[in-house]
């Protein structure tokens, strides 16, 4: 089994975000970056579990600059065998998918896993784009994955329920909650990660199909109106007359 897991580098949800250059640039100063939780907890960990039972190799791939390397090393510490970094700006989902597809097309991966979406740009697009670019089947929002021989059985979320599908390898999926449980890297993993191969690959030329013009912080709710616990009918009245929500 040759598995490729797509890893993105995102600000931890609890970090405060801000913008610079007249709100045109995300300010990375002081921001704690982590592996996107969907990529780490669900895609990578399930890939490692499969490798442990079926044998094989787990490669992680990231499109981004050298500043993402601590995040990539964390993926190696959790247990990936090797890593690839494509040295391109991940300007949008297509830019990422195009680079990964160009790298993966002749490498013979049996399984390519992405996360459900990044918690930074929340697109949920890279997996489907990869499938189209590589002409492979795509199962989105997988919550369970088992492999027997050369066939995968996958449970995934669909509109208003779940579906179980069977699909021969190779295929691409996006991983959702349910695939596996989080793993914490241990000291041995962290030590081993330092010497695992991390290959830097030059990007292919690509067009910028979209670009971000400006950012704006979402205005928070300013004041909460408190209603006394003994008079919930006041709340009902406000929801009707003021919020017009009921």
């Amino acid at each position: 089994m040759k598995i490729l897991v797509c890893i993105s580098n995102v600000p931890d949800t609890t970090t405060k975000i801000s913008f610079t250059n007249n709100d045109t640039t995300f300010n990375t100063a002081g921001v704690q970056f982590v592996i996107n939780p969907f990529d780490e907890w669900y895609a990578l960990v399930r890939a490692l579990e499969l490798k442990e039972t079926l044998g094989g190799n787990v490669t992680i791939i990231h499109v981004g600059g050298a500043d993402s390397e601590p995040t990539i090393r964390k993926g190696l510490a959790i247990g990936a065998d090797d890593a690839v970094r494509i040295d391109a700006e991940p300007s949008d989902a297509f830019a990422v998918a195009e680079q990964i597809a160009a790298y993966a097309k002749d490498k013979g991966f049996d399984l390519i896993m992405a996360g459900k979406e990044t918690i930074s740009y929340n697109s949920a697009m890279v997996g489907g784009m990869l499938a189209e670019l590589l002409n492979l089947p795509y199962i989105s929002l997988a919550t369970k994955l088992d492999i027997a021989g050369s066939v995968a059985t996958i449970e995934h979320d669909i509109d208003g329920g779940t579906e179980v599908v069977e699909c021969p390898l190779p295929l691409i999926l996006s991983a959702n909650k349910g695939m596996s449980e989080a793993r914490i890297p241990n000291m041995r993993g962290i030590m081993a990660a330092r010497s695992k191969p991390l290959t830097v690959v030059a990007p292919i030329a690509s067009d910028k199909l979209t670009n971000i013009v400006s950012y704006k912080l979402t205005a928070g709710r300013t004041d909460c109106k408190y209603i006394d616990a003994s008079t919930p009918e006041k709340l009902v009245e406000l929801l009707h007359t003021e919020a017009k929500a009921i």
Binding site: P11, T13, I17, F19, D92, I119, S120, Y121, N122, T210, N211, I212, V213, S214, Y215, K216, L217, T218
Partner: peptide, 10 residues
């Protein structure tokens, strides 16, 4: 973007 903490114009 950023799980609703901000918006971005593309």
């Amino acid at each position: 973007v950023f799980s609703g903490k901000a918006t971005a114009v593309y």
